[in-house]
Structure formats: C-alpha cells, structure tokens
C-alpha cells in the first residue's frame, strides 16, 4: 500500500482557531487550564477577581506555535466551569 506525502491544501482546509472566554468571578486559580494547554496559550495574569484569585489570560503576542486551536481541553478540565472556547475558522 502506498501512502501519499501530500500535505493538506491550505486554501481549502483551514485550521480552526479558538476565542477564549473567561468568567472572571468563577475562577479559583487552580492552574489546570494553564498547565494542560497543549499550545501553552494561557498564562496567569496580574488581574485579580473579587475574591483575590489571579485569573488566566491569553498570551498577548503569540509566537507562531502558540495559538489557540480550539481543542477545548481547558473547558473540560476546568473544575469551576469558568472558561470556554468559541471555535471559529480563521483566514
């Protein structure tokens, strides 16, 4: 059996990108979203919520590989239902 080495055509197939939403007042700073992000998109911010926890934020100027690709694992692993990803197709 022969396998093709062709990569997917970038004009037709678009990689999905995610928009990160955070419900600020629910976060308890457990750090799981930050440590489980496969692209290391998130980091702990200096911003605090009303209980004094540092909420996560997306890295301001992402490097080439550090772009949210909407895998949604931060959404499922968050114990506080505080983060979710809206998937969108980028150009």
């Amino acid at each position: 059996m022969q396998t093709s080495n062709k990569v997917l055509p970038s004009q037709r197939v678009k990689a999905s990108r995610g928009k990160i939403h955070i419900i600020k007042e629910r976060c308890k700073q457990c750090n799981l979203c930050i440590s489980f992000c496969p692209k290391q998109v998130l980091r702990r911010s200096d911003d605090i919520n009303e209980k004094g926890y540092h909420i996560p934020e997306a890295i301001e100027e992402p490097e080439k590989d550090k772009i949210c690709m909407a895998c949604g694992f931060c959404e499922v692993v968050c114990p506080d239902f505080a983060i979710w990803i809206e998937e969108r197709i980028d150009k």
Partner: peptide, 15 residues
Amino acid sequence: MNTQTTAESEQHPIE
C-alpha cells in the same frame, strides 16, 4: 488579543 471576559449575550455551553 483573543481573551475576553463574559459578554452577556454569550454563555458557557453548559450554562
């Protein structure tokens, strides 16, 4: 960038 705190029209998928 693409971080955004909750807008009222949008909800967590399991809300």
